[in-house]
Each structure stands twice: as C-alpha cells, then as structure tokens.
C-alpha cells in the first residue's frame, strides 16, 4: 500500500466513523439538490446574489454527489468545498453558481474551462450550452473526469489532459473561458483565445479560503479589463467624521 492509498483509507475510515450517525440518503438525491438550490438562491448581495434561473436549474439537475469521492457523498449538497484527491477540491456550490452566473452563458456559446478537477463545473456548463471544452493538467484527475463524463452521458463535453495555460487553440476563439485556479498573471494565450465581447471568469485565492471572483472582459475593440468581485458585504475604512471612504 503506498502512502497515498494509506492516507486515503485513513481519511475514509475517519470520515465514515464521523458520519456514522448521520442519515445517508440513497437514490439520485433530487430532494438534496432542491434544498441546496433553494439555499443558494438567497446567497450574496448586489451582483453576487444568485438570481439566474438557468444556473439554478442546471444545478438542480447535475448530481453533485457523483463528482465527489464515495466516502464524502453524504456531504455532497452542503455548501462547502470538498476534497477530490491530489490536493484538489470541488468548489463550494455557491462559488460554482456565482462563476456560472457571472459567465452569462447562452445556448450556442463555445466555452472553455481550464482546470477540469472533478468535472462538476463542466457538467453545469454543459447543461447551458452546446459544447464545453475542458483541460486538466493533473494526470489522474483528467482521467477520472473523462470516465465520469462518459458514465453520466455528458457527450457535449470535450475533455483533454494538458496544460491549460496555452488554452485550446484548435477550438478557439471562445465566447467564455472559466479558469478554476488563478495564476499570478492572466495567461496571454487565454486572452488571445477570447472572442471580442467575450468574458473570462477566474476565482482568485485558495480553494479552501477567501476567494474573490475576477471577470476579465474583452471589448469589441480588443481592449481587456478586469473586475474583482467580493462575495461579502464589507464595511470599508471610515473617516474621522464617520463617512465611509
């Protein structure tokens, strides 16, 4: 038994012990998904408030529990990130919903996802458009996601193992790009593969920690700007006269 599988078994054992007292629901978990969606629709404020029915509808149909390890399926519909192995996570449902809403996907759009991970985000996108292209650099994650897509019949997702930094030139340009892990700069090849008028959504910050979402917009003339959105309502620094700055 190698170190990873030993660790994995230990985690499973402990989690199983911890969850032994919790009720386990069988079946496709539609009731759990409905509850998750109803919770999400009240989250956020202003632009980060989840209001897009298409997003909520997609999240109501995609079985999130199929995208997490078996021993964590009980927690699949809680609004929290979960580990999927190899140090990676499946993002918390709120962040997935917000990213998808901000991407403003319409049918017919060509969407690229960089960082497949478990494949959950790609599955949500696949419910909203005709073709989703997704790239994962971590070899075992890419392989397991491909198997999962096949098993769930998600035939409109084209997945490959590779370096997302360079995008996917063969299918470029893209209307939307979702990057699931922020680098210290926005990869120029991705900016180049974004259509004029296109949008890129990137979460900034650790997957377990304080994330803000960044929107990269390319206007019709090719000028690129970014906008960072904080999904919390925050009281800024005030002046000595109690006026907010």
């Amino acid at each position: 038994m190698n170190s990873y599988s030993a660790k994995s078994w230990l985690t499973r054992l402990l989690t199983a012990l911890l969850l032994a007292t919790m009720p386990v629901t069988a079946g496709d978990r539609q009731a759990d998904r409905d509850r998750m969606v109803s919770e999400l629709s009240g989250y956020g404020y202003d632009i980060t408030l989840i209001t897009d029915d298409r997003v909520l509808s997609a999240m109501r149909t995609v079985p999130r529990h199929e995208f997490v390890p078996a021993y964590l399926q009980v927690q699949a519909y809680a609004d929290r990130p979960l580990p999927i192995g190899h140090g990676q996570t499946i993002s918390q449902p709120y962040i997935v919903a917000l990213m998808t809403q901000l991407a403003d996907i319409s049918p017919g759009m060509r969407v690229l996802e960089v960082g497949t991970g478990s494949g959950y985000q790609a599955a949500i996108l696949a419910r909203m458009t005709d073709r989703v292209y997704t790239i994962e650099i971590i070899v075992p994650l890419a392989a397991s996601a491909r198997v999962r897509f096949r098993e769930l019949g998600l035939t409109n997702i084209i997945a490959k193992e590779g370096d997302g930094y360079y995008g996917w030139k063969a299918y470029a340009p893209f209307d939307r790009i979702l990057v699931t892990a922020a680098a210290r700069h926005i990869p120029p090849p991705l900016v180049a593969q974004l259509k004029p008028g296109g949008l890129m959504v990137i979460p900034v910050g650790p997957s377990w920690g304080a994330q803000r979402l960044m929107l990269v917009r390319k206007d019709d003339s090719g000028v690129v700007t970014t906008e960072s959105l904080l999904p919390v309502r925050f009281v800024p620094l005030v002046s000595k006269q109690n006026a907010e700055w």
């Binding site: 370096d163 930094y165 210290r184 700069h185 926005i186 990869p187 120029p188 900016v191 700007t225």
Partner: peptide, 18 residues
C-alpha cells in the same frame, strides 16, 4: 515541469508568454 508559467504582474495587454 512544462506546466510552470510564473510571470508575476504581467500586463493584460502583453502578448508575451511566461
């Protein structure tokens, strides 16, 4: 690793890769 592309602070307007 061929997947390492740090170029901290590279401008949005740049067309150069890391």
């Amino acid at each position: 690793s061929p997947g390492m592309h740090a170029a901290p602070g590279l401008s949005l307007g740049s067309s150069a890769s890391a």
